[in-house]
């Protein structure tokens, strides 16, 4: 914590507000804002994980919401079997088991699809990641046992030692601490030797290969880490909304995650959080006036991309260009 720069102070400040304000609202009897903040924080975890590959790694994945969906179904399906029988090997309400399943399956999906997708670049990468995500989308849409298109109501939240997820404040605090940990982990990774290679390869892949780095393996590793973190966000989502449906992983959702990262400030620690916050607030405010709230949101995104290259964080720092 020594010698924080301005961005560091903004980050600490915003995170302190995020840690203190929602519980305060809950305490004075306004639960709505706590729930809103919970949704924000969970979305922010997904955005933070996307930022690792999109912001720092230059991989524009248009299928990131698939990991949220996989993580969420990996939490919901064991509960379903616990309550309604069938496939007893997977039936469980044990949170740690579900968590391992969510993170493990997301990482596995990232490994398999990443190994193929990362052989491509640019637009092809965008298309292929989107295609893989849509495959999962249609898979769950066709699984009638788990509700198909209508989704699956989750009868019971994960059972964890010491933590009761039915309690809104505990749910929030777990999500918030998870976000802080996710940010810390990503921050640590991108500043490590591994991170330097990842960022270098984003800037100039040929140079890094010429130096002797197999950049494909570095990218794939980052992709799997990002998938695992996002699967964790899916597990939280399922616990928060006690409902999971294929619409959570449609390509529109992946696009929203991309919006958040770019809007907030790609390749920064706080950017994805600001982006998620802006997304939730704008959605909440604008959708109370009009169902066409995506339009002003889109205009805002265009404005940020055109006029504030560093995103919202860049604007807070008082300069138009991010690092």
């Amino acid at each position: 914590m020594k010698s924080l720069d301005r961005t560091g102070w903004i980050t600490v400040g915003v995170m302190l507000l995020l840690g203190v304000l929602p519980p305060f609202f809950y305490w004075i009897g306004n639960e709505f804002y706590l729930l809103l903040a919970t949704r924000l924080v969970i979305l922010a975890i997904a955005a933070v994980s996307l930022n690792l590959i999109l912001g720092y790694g230059g991989m524009a994945s248009f299928g990131h919401a698939a990991f949220v969906g996989i993580g969420a179904y990996a939490m919901g399906i064991p509960v379903y079997h616990e309550f309604y029988g069938g496939f007893s090997a997977a039936a469980s309400t044990n949170g740690l088991f579900q968590l391992a399943l969510s993170v493990g399956l997301s990482a596995l999906f990232a490994l398999i699809t990443g190994a193929i997708s990362l052989r491509t670049r640019g637009v092809y990468f965008i298309m292929i990641t989107m295609a893989f995500a849509q495959m999962v989308f249609y898979l769950f849409q066709s699984l009638d046992e788990y509700g198909g298109d209508d989704g699956l109501v989750i009868e019971m939240r994960s059972e964890l030692p010491w933590i009761n997820l039915d309690h809104p404040l505990q749910m929030y605090l777990l999500s918030f601490v998870s976000l802080v940990v996710a940010m810390g982990v990503v921050h640590m990774i991108v500043n490590s030797r591994f991170g330097m290679v990842l960022r270098g390869a984003k800037g100039n892949d040929e140079r890094l290969v010429t130096l002797g780095f197999n950049t494909y393996l570095y990218r794939l590793t980052a992709y799997v880490i990002a998938g695992a973190i996002c699967g964790f966000a899916g597990w939280l989502t399922a616990n928060f909304s006690t409902f999971v449906s294929p619409s959570m992983m449609g390509w529109g959702r992946s696009g929203e995650l991309m919006f958040m990262v770019i809007l907030g400030g790609a390749a920064t620690a706080l950017g994805p959080v600001l982006g998620a916050a802006a997304f939730i607030l704008i959605e909440e405010i604008l959708s109370s006036f009009t169902v066409y709230w995506h339009l002003p949101f889109g205009l805002m995104l265009i404005g940020v991309v055109l006029f504030a290259r560093g995103g919202l964080l860049g604007m807070l720092q008082g300069r138009g260009r991010g690092k």
């Binding site: 990774i189 490590s192 030797r193 991170g195 330097m196 290679v197 130096l211 002797g212 570095y218």
Partner: peptide, 24 residues
Amino acid sequence: DNVALAVQACDGHSFRFVKPARKI
């Protein structure tokens, strides 16, 4: 950083995730 990456390239593999590279 550009030069340090080149030094890093001949200093074993870089699947090292914890220690900040700029402090090595």
